[in-house]
Design a protein around this nucleic acid. Sequence first.
DNA 1: CGATTGACGTACG
DNA 2: TCGTACGCCAATC
Length: 122
Amino acid sequence: MKMLDTIRKSGNKKNADFFEQVYNIVRLIPRGRVTSYGAIAKALGSAKSSRMVGYAMNASHLAQPHVPAQRVVNRKGMLTGKHHFGSPDAMQKLLEADGVKVKDDCVVDFEKLFWDPMKEIG
DNA sequence: CGATTGACGTACG
DNA sequence: TCGTACGCCAATC
């Protein structure tokens, strides 16, 4: 499904291009699965803009509908952004609610649960 | 308009 | 194997 293509065309507005794309991809993440900032950045064609993905996530709480930001972690599978949630434990709780086990701020079986955006987009 | 920062990632020691 | 340094690109100061 070339969803990103649609996303890109629909979100070609000057503002909200990168952010919107990030949000859309994150919203595509199935329940019980996770992905990384770098993977999203790469999926958007800006592999070197992984930091921007994280930056976009910082404002993800403003996006509508809700963006499951808890399903996005760094390449190590660590919950680096947990501190940006309401509570430091909110992210882990949300992940556990999705069926993702978290141990020591790290996603268990991260590689197995890893969801590749390119797989859905490409 | 230049400098600083950041929910990352890769390279290097 | 672990810790530190740097690059990337957009937003904020």
